[in-house]
Amino acid sequence: MRRLWRDSEARAESILAVCMIALSAAVWIAADRLPRPIFDPLGSGAVPKLVALLVMALAAAMLVQRLLGTADRGAVPDPGDPTDRVAPLRPGIAVGAFAAIAACPAVMDAGLLGFRETAFVFILALGGILSRFSRRTMTILVPTAAMLAVGLSWLFGGYFYIDLPATPWLPF
């Protein structure tokens, strides 16, 4: 168990397997509560229950493979690191990128900002996180973000008639 916890890939796989088992259990319970069929041989709940059961069994198999240390390594060969050196992973940047991505619908959903303003801030924020706010990248990003935010608002709002969210406290 300790070995499993030390190996990050095994740890991620085990957590994912447990999540899948929980999800399919929830689906199975919800499908089981659906009314029984009258004329139709299957009803609404049969296929979801079958699929949930299969997911549960396969996720459990994956978990057991990990616990026993017999997990497959995959069929596709890895061409290796292109730089001939270990390129370090950047979990901090990935978390920052995800936070920016999740914040984007959140601020619009909460009615704090409209699409135009959110798009502008988001492009600068994500671009900044990915480039560690390098001056060169930010210089390109500012006009790009402004053009895209205004241009897409005009194109989708005015031309395709999509009701993109607007900032409630801005008069324009």
């Binding site: 619908p105 988001f122 492009i123 924020a125 671009g127 900044g128 990915l130 480039s131 990248t137 990003l141």
Partner: peptide, 17 residues
């Protein structure tokens, strides 16, 4: 760093539309 934020904005508009 320039390409990915732009791609996500298109993605957002596409899903919302």
């Amino acid at each position: 760093a320039i390409l990915l934020p732009v791609i996500f904005i298109f993605c957002l508009v596409g899903a919302y539309a």
